[in-house]
Design a protein around this nucleic acid. Structure first.
Lengths: 225, 225
DNA sequence: GACAAGGTCTCTGTATACATTCGTGCGAAA
DNA sequence: TTTCGCACGAATGTATACAGAGACCTTGTC
């Protein structure tokens, strides 16, 4: 694996997991010392982060972790509605029925576990990831998949901002199961409708969940660490 | 302006304009000699092209201009329908009425010129570009705009593949005027419907127009120039 | 005391040298 | 004759040195 790949993935995780806060300056020398590699692969990693939109190149000040506001959440969900609804339709049209039937079954199994006290979040999250990949594969549209990848990066960052309510988690699992069933049945209309319902609920959950950060807009530009 | 920016834009134009054909290997040394700069900024330019999807990094063989097939055209228009329809709705919701009223008026003026023998393509193309920018601004959604930017890059490449029929050009102008009017009126439903009509006609025009290249899939990987 | 201008300093942008890895071609053996 | 293996070469991946540009601080003047 290349050094630039390692640096890119590490930095990306740091940003998505909020270990690197918005406004943080990512100096080339500083990061190269941190990873023990030279500036060249760091530069490539920072370029990729900038292309992803997770960081922005400030003229003369270097690369800075991008801000995330409530307005961004709205914008992200607007794009997500466009992409996910279309993806759901296309998946319903071209899906392998067994794959999505299995996903629906597994989601309902996890759903029952989520009602207990020991909330097995990891299992659910992994299942959602598998479903995303299954939809990507079913749509058979590399351009749509690429757009989704970029979007999911930002969504993951926003999601990590607030602890999801356990009740909401269970309802989300039920909604995912509904989407999977609709896709398995090949019903485009229902798949899109179920997706739209899921997104509306998800957005509301994010907006009503008490969040920590984005009230204080994080250090504007001066070295935040 | 940075050397890497110049190289990126020049290479991007070369790919979109089909001066660099799919399968063409973009060697770092070769390109650095061509532009008279070192490998470092070339590497950055190639990275950005790869991120755009206009080129692909082949392990051990370097960066290669990406292929475009009929299947890609279908996929591109699927994504375009998702993005453009959503963008049209959002633009209708948040537009500045005067901007789109003016665009509609200008489009109809150009439309009449297009009926004559001297087809003023450039004027029309520039107007469409202005309308794209106006929609981007009206949607007020940077994530949607970023997705659009990437998509339009690929669409521009596909569009350059075939000479657009003059009749089709006039009809496309009329369709654009219709979209602009709907947005100016603030009718989300009509804006989306008009967009959908335009896209369906555009796709059919592309698919029925005789094309040169993609029958012969271009040199697969061996040096194509 | 505040604002502007100049200087310094640190950081990015670029060039180049070196190492590592992958492809390719030739030769030998089955 | 075909296939496997080794060696050579070229291109990428990385490191480092240098130059230029921008930011910040200091000082002087109003």
């Amino acid at each position: 694996m290349r050094a630039s790949d390692r640096a890119y993935e590490a930095l990306r995780e740091d940003i998505v997991e909020w270990r690197l806060l918005p406004g943080q300056v990512l100096g080339e020398v500083e990061q190269s010392e941190r990873f023990g590699i030279s500036r060249t692969p760091i530069r490539e990693a920072l370029s990729r982060l900038t292309a992803d939109g997770l960081a922005e190149a400030h003229r003369g000040r270097g690369v800075v972790v991008s801000q995330v506001s409530l307005e961004d959440v709205r914008a992200l969900f607007e794009l997500r509605e466009a992409l996910d609804c279309r993806a759901a339709r296309l998946a319903a049209r071209r899906r392998d029925p067994v794959t999505f039937q299995d996903l629906a079954t597994e989601l309902e199994a996890v759903l029952h576990q989520l009602h207990g006290p020991g909330t097995d979040r990891t299992g659910y999250y992994e299942l959602v990831e598998r479903m995303d990949r299954a939809i990507d594969e079913a749509t058979a549209n590399p351009y749509l998949t690429a757009a989704q990848r970029s979007l999911r990066l930002h969504l993951a960052r926003v999601r990590k901002l607030s602890r999801t309510n356990p009740d909401r988690l269970a309802r989300a699992a039920a909604e995912h199961a509904q989407i999977a069933r609709a896709i398995a049945e090949g019903s485009e209309e229902l798949a899109e409708a179920a997706t739209r319902v899921h997104l509306a609920n998800s957005l509301q959950a994010v907006l009503t969940t008490p969040v920590r950060e984005w009230v204080q807009p994080a250090p504007p530009l001066e070295a935040a660490g």
